[in-house]
Nucleic acid binder design. Structure first.
Length: 767
DNA sequence: TCCGCCTAGGTTTTT
DNA sequence: CCTAGGCGGA
């Protein structure tokens, strides 16, 4: 038997050995699908004798691509590993287009616009069309356009298909937006895919070239493909039909960005001769963790592919459920547990991950971990390349690569300040529109005395504009001669970036930002081995397409803090899932739509199945967001977990969940019985979880639901002694009305707490 | 045009 | 809470 098949179970082996024709592998979490992918590639090369040059593998992140290459290097040697093509849809499309975009009558040095660039361009579109940003939020409009692109609907078709007034506005913006992109010789993220599909569509000879080359096509995370990616796969696979798609419909969490779960559900219709293989054995987690995962996912409606997860890993430790008082206590609990487990030995910092729904949740964690001296790495939030000073310097580089890139041009035309204000900028745009040329071209016209005479600028303004043009021209010229690192050096010297940053932000922050700019220079050193003329393009492409998760340092011995979305594909011995509350998971923006709620459920499923040995499910009794504090309702998904699967919290200061608590009852609208709850019962005490946040009030603590406005005056006064079911006796420090509720500050034995009178069931203690 | 103060409004998730 | 944008003054 081949060396490469050793250590694989029969199902995995079948997948690896499937040679020809379409194959769909439905792989449960932790079932070794990455292993199957890499071993299949290795098998194709080493056993079947396929030339690695003829293999194309598409992964979901650059990180996954890199890791796959590394594994293959070990498996089949660096030469073969290097010869095959691995990348994300976006990076591959960028590469294809660089090679062949001239077929579409375009220039090769196109810029790639990220979300910030897209937003800026959309604002300009709205200005051009005299539309009010308040009424038509640029991001909302762009969202519509992006969805249309994902569906391969162009501006004309969009205009034809849609009938409402709003649609009509969007259609006009779409048309203009595309026109400006083209004028700027730029593609946005969506265009990378759309234009590749178009290229293949309009130029069969180009597609044919890829059919010849890529005899074997492998696609990971197939459930996350959108319509456009689906078509692209179809185009590429149409040649030899050796498509090997791997995915898990239960882990589909990218519907919001166009991923269409139907792509995986309809695989068999699309490819009638497809083999469908199931990977159900889990090698990652303990049975206790899988039971939780199963409970969560079984709470979903009917599913097309029901996988029965099982493992030989043994029962393992019971999963813990923990209620914190607020997000700080929640974070403290997490940090204390990490410290405790790390001290107990056997676990390193990097064995821990804390996962959450939204990036903003990382803040409290950061504080708690730092307070204990526990190193952490936060994945996500603001990317390094999204920092203003970094983007500003980058804009000059982008301008050097492609002077028609109007977003970059306008970004830095007055940075550092050179006396070109809003007024001048608007005039410049207007004038360029009038001439019908890109903005950079208009600037060049200005250098010519005769044209300048007709331009709407006075001598001083013209001087400022020409000063900017001179810098741009200098960089464009330097680009061909200087290595990338020197080009960056030229920019920061010529513009005195450090001085500008200190002037703008003061010495402390200024130096901070300056160090980010220096870091930018460091990253450029990765490209020194390329020929000078290729360095800039390669660098800019990487900057545009790299994700934050791609930068994670797996070597660092630090606790990982990461969103559930980014955590997909990762695994850790110990996982904390925090903020399991209505409004957060499911997120409030998703709670009203059945489909979206199901996606949120799958997100929790993804989180649960990241854990290998220990799993903690956490939520807080109160949470502060936007500076407002609200009482929370535990996530409805917790109600799908049988209570006996969970270790109950015992610590003082945490809730003891009553046997008849709706948390462990059935799902759906049955409201809790008002009697029968054990004293000291759950301090959140709320209802079925159909609503959350402030609307969760009123059903609290056996009080009447639908209570009208709330108290109009305080009923507690400083100095009174009170008793609370959980916290014991305390003294009222003060009380005030907040949002139609009474917030009482009470000093308990351990510390001061603020409680809402409607929830907290405070009894007055007579003396 | 630039600077600084102020407030109103906003955050899902990412290539 | 934080930040971007609006507005007044120089």
């Amino acid at each position: 038997m081949s060396e490469l098949l050793k250590g694989l179970n029969p199902a995995q082996r079948r997948a690896v050995e499937a040679i020809a024709g379409p194959v769909l592998v439905l792989a449960g979490p932790g079932s070794g699908k990455t292993r199957v992918l890499t071993h299949r590639i290795a098998y194709l090369i080493k056993t079947v004798g396929v030339d690695p040059y003829n293999i194309l593998a598409v992964t979901f992140t650059n990180k996954a691509a890199r890791e796959m290459k590394e594994r293959l290097e070990a498996l089949i040697g660096p030469a073969d590993a290097h010869a095959l093509t691995v990348g994300t849809f976006h990076s591959l499309c960028a590469r294809f287009l660089r090679r062949d975009i001239v077929h579409l009558g375009r220039e090769r040095d196109f810029a790639i616009y990220d979300s910030d660039d897209q937003d800026r361009l959309m604002r300009r579109v709205l200005k051009d069309l005299n539309l009010d940003e308040k009424q038509y939020p640029p991001r909302a409009i762009h969202g519509r356009i992006s969805s249309a692109k994902n569906e391969l609907v162009g501006p004309e078709e969009y205009a034809r298909l849609n009938r409402t007034y709003y649609d009509e506005i969007v259609a006009r913006c779409y048309e203009r937006y595309q026109r400006l992109l083209r004028e700027s010789n730029a593609l946005d993220f969506d265009d990378l895919l759309v234009e590749t599909v178009r290229l293949f569509d309009e130029h069969p000879e180009v597609l044919e070239k890829y059919h010849q080359r890529y005899a074997y096509l492998l696609v990971d995370e197939y459930q996350d493909t959108n319509r456009c990616q689906y078509v692209l796969v179809k185009q590429l696979a149409a040649g030899r039909r050796n498509l090997f798609a791997v995915g898990d419909d239960d882990q589909s969490v990218y519907g919001w960005r166009g991923a269409d779960i139907r792509n995986i559900l309809q695989f068999e219709q699309d490819y009638p001769d497809a083999k469908v293989l199931l990977l159900e054995q889990n090698y990652r987690s303990t049975q206790a963790i899988l039971d939780i995962a199963q409970a969560v996912i079984n709470g979903a409606g009917k599913r097309k592919h029901v996988k029965k997860l099982w493992t030989e890993n043994g029962e393992g430790l019971q999963v813990s459920l923990h209620e914190g008082y607020d997000q700080n206590e929640e974070a403290n609990f997490v940090a204390d547990e990490i410290a405790r487990l790390a001290a107990a030995g056997g676990l390193r910092r990097r064995d821990f991950a804390v996962m959450y729904r939204i990036n903003a949740q990382s803040r409290a964690l950061e504080e708690a971990l730092e307070a204990r001296g526990i190193p952490l790495q936060i994945v996500g939030g603001t990317r390094f390349y999204d920092r203003k000073e970094v983007k500003d310097v980058l804009a000059y580089l982008r301008l050097a690569a492609n002077p028609f890139d109007s977003v970059s041009l306008l970004r830095v035309i007055n940075w550092p300040g050179r006396g070109i204000g809003e007024r001048t900028e608007a005039e410049l745009i207007r004038w360029a529109n009038e001439l019908g040329v890109p903005i950079f071209q208009a600037l060049r016209e200005l250098a010519d005395e005769e044209s300048a005479a007709r331009a709407p600028f006075n001598a001083r303004t013209r001087g400022a504009l020409l000063a900017f043009l001179a810098i741009a021209e200098e960089l464009i010229a330097a680009r061909r001669e200087l290595p990338l690192a020197d080009l960056i050096g030229r920019i920061v010297d010529r513009l005195d970036v450090r001085e500008a940053l200190v002037r703008e932000h003061g010495p402390d922050e200024g130096e901070d930002r300056w160090s980010n700019v220096l870091e930018l220079g460091n990253k450029a050193l990765d490209f020194v081995n390329l020929p000078v003329e290729e360095q800039l393009g390669a660098y800019l492409e990487q900057v545009a397409l790299i994700a934050d998760v791609d930068n994670m340092d797996p070597q660092a011995d630090a606790v990982t803090c990461i969103t559930l979305h980014q955590a997909k594909g990762l695994e850790y011995p110990v996982v904390f899932l925090i903020g399991l509350e209505e409004g957060l998971l499911p997120h409030s923006r998703s709670s009203d739509d059945r489909e979206k709620v199901e996606e949120e459920r799958r997100l929790l499923y993804v989180g649960v199945t990241r854990a290998r040995q220990r799993l903690y499910l956490c939520y807080a009794f109160r949470r502060t967001s936007y500076g407002r504090t609200n009482v929370t309702t535990p996530s409805r998904f917790l109600a799908d977990i049988p209570r006996e699967l969970l270790k109950q919290p015992k610590k003082r200061g945490t809730a003891v969940i009553a046997p008849d608590s709706p948390l462990f009852g059935g799902r759906g609208g049955s409201s809790p019985k008002s009697g029968g709850r054990a004293s000291g019962a759950s301090s959140w005490g709320s209802s079925s979880g159909a609503s959350w946040g402030s609307s969760g009030r009123g059903a609290a603590g056996g009080r009447e639901r639908g209570r009208p406005a709330g108290p109009t005056e305080v009923t507690f006064f400083a100095g009174q002694r009170v008793r609370h079911g959980t916290f014991g006796e305390g003294v009222v420090m003060g009380s005030r009305l907040v949002d139609g509720d009474e917030e009482v500050t009470v000093s308990f034995a351990d510390r001061e707490r603020r409680l809402l009178a409607s929830f907290a069931k405070l009894e007055r203690v007579e003396e």
